[in-house]
Design a protein around this nucleic acid. Structure first.
Length: 104
DNA sequence: AGTAAGGCGGGCA
DNA sequence: GTGCCCGCCTTAC
C-alpha cells in the first residue's frame, strides 16, 4: 500500500515534458478533486529530485502557483521546457494542460 | 488523540 | 485585481 504521496508522484510522472497539470487534476486522478491541497502538501514535503517534475504542476486558473524553492525558480524551469509564462500565467494553459483523463 | 500546516479551489465582497 | 473565508484531505508533531 503506497502512501498518498507516492500515489501523487506516480501520477505527476506521467506529465510529459513541455506540458502541465494542476493540483486539482491530480487530485481528480486520485479520486477526489478536493485532494488538491493534500497534493500540494505532498510536493512541498517531498520533492524527490528529478524523479518528480513538481514544477509542471500549476494552479487551476493557469497561474504558476507556489514552489518550495521559490515561484521564480519554478517559472524558470517551466520556461526551460518550452512553456511560456507571462505575469505568472501559463500561456496556452488550456492547450498544455493535461486532464485527469490522461492519467488513467 | 488533537491540532496545525500546506505549492489549493471556489466563491464572494 | 486583491483579500478573506470556508471546505477538503493527508502528514507531522
Amino acid at each position: 500500500m503506497i502512501s498518498f504521496y507516492e500515489h501523487s508522484y506516480k501520477i505527476l510522472r506521467k506529465v510529459p515534458k513541455g506540458k502541465v497539470t494542476t493540483y486539482k487534476e491530480i487530485a481528480k486522478a486520485l479520486g477526489n478533486a478536493h485532494l488538491a491541497r493534500a497534493v500540494g502538501l505532498a510536493l512541498n514535503r517531498n520533492q524527490t529530485p528529478i524523479k518528480i517534475p513538481c514544477h509542471r504542476v500549476v494552479k487551476s486558473d493557469g497561474s504558476v502557483g507556489g514552489y518550495k524553492l521559490g515561484q521564480n525558480k519554478k517559472i524558470e524551469l517551466l520556461k526551460s521546457e518550452g512553456i511560456k509564462i507571462v505575469n505568472r500565467k501559463i500561456q496556452g494553459f488550456e492547450t498544455l494542460l493535461m486532464h485527469s483523463e490522461g492519467f488513467k
